[in-house]
Design a protein around this nucleic acid. Sequence first.
DNA 1: ATCTTTATCTTGACAGTGTCAAATTATGAT
DNA 2: ATCATAATTTGACACTGTCAAGATAAAGAT
Lengths: 202, 202
Amino acid sequence: MPSSGTQNYHHGDLRSALLDAAATRIENQGIEGLSLRKLADDVGVSRSALYHHFRDKNALLNAVAANGFANWIAMTSESGGDESVPAPVRMKQFVYGYVHWAVEHPQLYDLMFGRPIWKNDLADDELKDVAYPAFQYMLGLITHWQQQGVLLADKPALRQTQVIWATLHGLAKLVTDGVYVDSSHIDEMCDCAVNMLLPNKL
Amino acid sequence: MPSSGTQNYHHGDLRSALLDAAATRIENQGIEGLSLRKLADDVGVSRSALYHHFRDKNALLNAVAANGFANWIAMTSESGGDESVPAPVRMKQFVYGYVHWAVEHPQLYDLMFGRPIWKNDLADDELKDVAYPAFQYMLGLITHWQQQGVLLADKPALRQTQVIWATLHGLAKLVTDGVYVDSSHIDEMCDCAVNMLLPNKL
DNA sequence: ATCTTTATCTTGACAGTGTCAAATTATGAT
DNA sequence: ATCATAATTTGACACTGTCAAGATAAAGAT
């Protein structure tokens, strides 16, 4: 069955086709619900064709997560980088952006910052190369706000970044994992978080 | 093979034996590494004997998590309930206790507060009955500290509890999930968190 | 003591999973 | 046309959770 060009024996661009299919399948059913065999069916290819493009399932997940980080960084740069508004407002925007992105992409967020990948060093170099800049970007933001006096400088910027990130990550996790079932008060929780973390109230 | 009393055809107390074995296996290999068949081998019983004591694997995990909550509440009451020390110090103790308990029982913490159980309502009533008081206990603490002026009362206690819990949960998650690989600075992160969350510094 | 009922445990089986080895097929270079 | 290489498939293996049917022990009734 020839015809449509990309549908030969050699798929053409199977790697990215698998990545796309995996991303949408993860978005719908979550990481646990991702089966390599069903994925192969989606793309219309045999079950073990995948192994010529990814070493194993973990490598595929790493690649999906790496794409997620690229997406995440794009969002973050947008919501935190507007120099025209005062810093406290930018921080509020950043918090909103972070939590809302996580809530809108719960499965992807779970994959990117979750245990299966990071525990026991299952993250490959390619993923680390995209993930570390994400944290560095946050560290840069916090350092900047510290220098501007929006945040106190009584503790190292690294520590404050870790705590602020922990707060955002905790909010995101509690909501996306279903521990906070009531997700209609996300904005109020974000407001409260900004309020508590900033020494000079808005 | 009769002999030792509890090793008959009827196991005697298979349910709690399974619970114990599951807890230690989870502690070592994590939730993902828990196989019902290996578990049955540990206890010396056939693979499907389990189904006469738990409806399915999820029910077993629920029971293990419920035990974990009992343990957690015991620890928390101890580290936060000392009335003789001033409230800010007690809050610091509470934060230390929370994060350290999570770090010392990473797999159990992951099970108790993780996505597999709470997402899509997989928590049964028995578990909810133990888990909700845990949050209520925290809410009580925060409310008390608000009334004592340790925390500002400019936001509802519920919101502040959610944010503080998010911070602790985020710290715990980032460390136990391996995102913060450097776990030697846990105490400094806790200090910084207390410092940022308390309006009146220690 | 014997029969019946009930709870408990085992064996066999099924569908599903990730992964590898060997065979198959297409592509590209010579 | 030939050959090497890359891409894909089929067969197989070990593993998983779960169910149905049979086997066994304990408990209750008479």
